[in-house]
Simulated scan of single mutants.
Amino acid sequence: MKKMYCMKCGLEIHVKFGMVPNSCACGAEFREWNKDTVKNTVVCIITLLLLMSPLFVIVFFARKILQDSMLLYAIMLVAFIICFRQVEGILIRIGILKINNIEIR
């Protein structure tokens, strides 16, 4: 996969567990994403839904079990957050989601 670099200082961004950090060591923030066109936004949302769909299917079939146990519900919520951050990292690396201050080489 392509590597990500900070545009401010040029250091490589270290991705842990597939999740992109929110800032660089130099202080550059990676929070805002570039919304160039409506097409780019729609493609990003559709790709995000496609990559998250396996987790949605698991929740659909396990909803009876999730209603009975709050612990399983909390675990599934944490899984959604982790999966969302990993999908965000994938979208950044393949170039669909463009974050300010990140350069992909």
Score class of each variant (00 low, 15 high):
48 L>I: 04
57 V>Y: 12
66 L>V: 07
91 L>N: 09
16 K>W: 06
62 A>N: 13
78 V>F: 13
11 L>I: 03
8 K>H: 04
93 R>I: 06
16 K>D: 15
104 I>F: 01
36 D>F: 05
53 S>V: 03
85 R>D: 05
78 V>R: 04
88 E>Y: 05
21 P>N: 10
62 A>P: 03
64 K>F: 05
11 L>R: 12
73 Y>G: 09
12 E>Q: 15
101 N>D: 02
85 R>P: 02
42 V>D: 15
102 I>C: 05
22 N>S: 13
28 A>H: 03
6 C>V: 01
67 Q>I: 05
59 V>S: 11
4 M>A: 14
13 I>S: 00
89 G>F: 07
35 K>Q: 14
29 E>G: 10
25 A>C: 05
56 F>R: 00
103 E>P: 00
32 E>H: 14
27 G>I: 11
56 F>V: 01
45 I>F: 09
67 Q>T: 04
16 K>L: 13
90 I>Q: 08
83 C>P: 00
59 V>D: 10
96 I>R: 14
88 E>L: 13
79 A>K: 02
21 P>A: 08
16 K>A: 12
91 L>P: 06
43 V>R: 15
7 M>L: 08
36 D>T: 14
67 Q>S: 07
105 R>A: 00
37 T>L: 03
72 L>D: 03
65 I>S: 08
9 C>K: 05
25 A>F: 04
38 V>T: 11
65 I>K: 07
45 I>H: 14
12 E>W: 01
25 A>G: 13
92 I>W: 04
76 M>L: 06
13 I>Y: 00
79 A>M: 12
15 V>N: 09
54 P>L: 04
41 T>C: 09
35 K>T: 12
87 V>F: 04
87 V>D: 02
3 K>C: 00
92 I>G: 01
37 T>N: 15
93 R>G: 00
14 H>F: 06
1 M>I: 03
65 I>D: 06
94 I>C: 08
41 T>M: 14
88 E>V: 08
83 C>K: 09
69 S>N: 14
104 I>M: 01
105 R>S: 01
26 C>S: 02
50 L>F: 15
46 I>W: 12
81 I>V: 15
11 L>V: 06
53 S>F: 13
9 C>R: 06
54 P>T: 03
96 I>K: 12
40 N>G: 12
67 Q>Y: 11
101 N>C: 01
63 R>Q: 09
